[in-house]
């Protein structure tokens, strides 16, 4: 379908930096596994953000350094991490009360597909041979106040990830507020997509040609 090149637009570190700029001082934030984890490296100086990991920690610090890994201190991706001074541990029902009770401000997730209406598909490709696994994704999308998606604009084979209607099984309907890709930042408003910022060298026409969903300027 569309053109796919890693040499144009932003790289994913730059995209993570764009997400970080939109995280306000004092925010409680949950970062999904993978690319969303990059966001933590780019919070601007002077802002304090508290990271929640759904396996029972508020105040997640950096990845544990070599030789200092503690098998009983891991994040949702089961990586060895650290806790900041002032961190808190709690059990799973409390942790998901923070999520489902609307106490977490921002969640940054990856995506297989996002639709014009802000529907998100990020847990299953519907492949009958795959082992189904959902984790906390469906809780996060309904409970966290603001859902940001960070993703490559297109798949490796060049298929649009920003679609009219998700073909993969949904994680949640009408849940995404903003999409950050290597080509653009796109807002979801009233079930329509609006360009907020284009990456350097990316024109609106180019973006629309490489996006299945209808974009608005």
């Amino acid at each position: 379908m569309g053109l796919n090149s890693d040499n144009i637009g932003w790289n994913m570190n730059e995209v993570a930096q764009k997400v970080a700029l939109d995280i306000h001082d004092g925010a409680y934030v949950n970062l999904g596994i993978g690319i969303p984890e990059l966001v933590a490296d780019y919070i601007p100086r002077g802002r304090e953000v508290i990271y929640h990991t759904e396996n029972g920690l508020l105040g997640m610090g950096k990845i544990a350094s070599r030789g200092k890994e503690d098998p009983e201190l891991v994040n949702a991706g089961k990586k060895y991490i650290t806790a900041i001074p002032g961190a808190a541990y709690f059990h799973h029902a409390d942790s998901f009360s923070m999520i489902r009770g609307g106490h977490i401000d921002i969640c940054v997730l990856g995506a297989y597909q996002v639709s014009e209406a802000g529907d998100l598909a990020n847990w299953s490709t519907g492949d009958p041979d795959a082992i189904p696994a959902v984790g906390g994704a469906m809780d996060l999308v309904v409970g966290v106040k603001t859902i940001y998606v960070i993703t490559k604009h297109n798949t490796k084979s060049g298929t649009s990830k920003i679609v009219k209607k998700c073909s993969y099984p949904l994680t949640g309907k009408n849940v995404v507020s903003r999409i950050y890709t290597n080509y653009a930042i796109i807002d979801v408003k009233d079930k329509k997509l609006f360009i907020r910022e284009l990456a350097p060298g990316i024109s609106f026409d180019f973006l629309q040609k490489n996006t299945e969903a209808k974009l608005n300027q």
Partner: peptide
């Protein structure tokens, strides 16, 4: 298969 928060609750 149960969403993690639903499982906990």
């Amino acid at each position: 298969l149960v969403p993690q928060g639903t499982l906990a609750e």
